[in-house]
Design a protein around this nucleic acid. Structure first.
Lengths: 227, 227
DNA sequence: GCTAATTAGCGTATCTCATACGCACAACCG
DNA sequence: CGGTTGTGCGTATGAGATACGCTAATTAGC
């Protein structure tokens, strides 16, 4: 490749009128792979398993997808087919809150996608549309383009990072188990206090929402100062 | 396992006084694996390659590490051996800025670690120490423990998300290539404008720093309101 | 020292995967 | 109805992780 998957994600799909008509399609393959990943985890997505589900031979898949890595890239972008609908006329803050929650929902629906979000890949049509939607919110406030990008990055960055513990918490009750060590009290005094107050196991604060509000507060201050 | 790698990361390392003395050690293995990942990427870390570098047989590694997945977990935690030194007496904001930049430096030094940061794993001693350091900063401000966690999450989340494009930009010049498409102007009007103003290719704004300041602004407002 | 116990090093075999190659088949064109 | 073109897919290959079990190097106790 060398183009970071660009051709794959954006290449035109002209249907040849000649030759044997395809029984498979890239869409069907990606959709089925997505279903496997959602249900059994990304690790269970193998070409063999995928082919079985599709009722086809393993090598048939390669007629529609260059390889596994590229398939994964397509899967990732496929999670973002339709962009989120944002409330209009209620201001940028309401819009960005909705956007952030939509991104969060996305990662909850496809936990495997979170690790890919921070991995190297070219941007596909889906991700581009989501980005465009968010950029539009800040652009409507009259901010310079570069600031818009930075603002979206701030929100998007926060969401990605904050969603991790949420997803993790479900199937990993060992996060804070190390505090049972004798040395924990001295080595990690602050984490220790946190758990001692039981605030982690029984959260009374919407951690995600709290952080999001702070990020938006920070952006609000900037926007007001520069209006 | 089933313990999310807990035993692996936190288990005591008692040296038996009997038996053949080990030529390898978990530390040496992890350190070498880290060196490979930094130099050639995580994908190049194979048990074979690693054994060759260490001048040992492949299966010898398994005497010190349960398996590949666990090795990667150890590698990740090993990137965070020494916690960052934060300025003292200059306030929480200076401290957290230093912390955030230290996290950022970490990911720049070990780009492969970014994808792992958002993956599922138990927290190791290194990560715990970094977390503790950051928690301490907010705790010193007299905030309740739960708010401290949310605040750290906000900063950490932002950093993780914002670092990605920085790392990616280095070896992927195709990020915004899709804008050459004819339909780009209509489909992605805001991204289009962003690039049209050339603000992406030649950034005049410190995108990372801008977002960080906004996040800290938001936290500042909260801290002041609740003092 | 000698022997048994203990633990590390590691060769071999196996299993899982991704994937290159090439043949056979189906549809369309003339 | 043969040629063209693109698809379906069986087989072979090679990389990678790792279970098993033998061998080697120590030390504890006699």
């Amino acid at each position: 490749m060398g183009d970071g998957g660009y051709e794959l994600l954006w290449g035109a799909k002209t249907r040849p009128a000649r030759g044997r008509p395809p029984a498979l399609s890239r869409e069907r393959i990606v959709a089925e792979a997505l279903a496997i990943a959602d249900a059994e985890g990304l690790q269970q997505v193998s070409m063999k398993h995928l082919a079985e589900r599709l009722g086809s031979g393993v090598m048939s898949l390669y007629r529609h997808v260059p390889g596994k890595d590229e398939l994964v890239a397509l899967m990732y972008d496929a999670t973002m087919t339709d962009p989120p609908r944002l409330p209009e006329g209620e201001g940028w803050r309401a819009a960005m809150t909705a956007w952030a929650l939509a991104v969060r929902d996305l990662f909850h629906a496809h936990p495997w996608a979170l690790a890919l979000a921070t991995a190297n890949h070219a941007m596909g049509p889906g991700e581009a549309r989501w980005l465009d939607t968010a950029l539009g919110v800040f652009e409507a406030e009259g901010l310079p383009a570069e600031i818009c990008l930075a603002a979206v990055m701030a929100v998007n960055g926060y969401v990605g990072g904050a969603v991790r513990p949420e997803i993790q918490g479900q199937d990993d009750p060992h996060w804070f188990r190390f505090l049972q060590h004798e040395s924990a009290r001295e080595d990690y005094p602050h984490v220790y206090r946190l758990v001692a107050e039981n605030s982690f196991t029984v959260p009374t604060v919407d951690v995600f929402g709290f952080g999001l509000e702070r990020v938006l507060d920070g952006l609000e201050r900037y926007i007001e100062d520069h209006r």
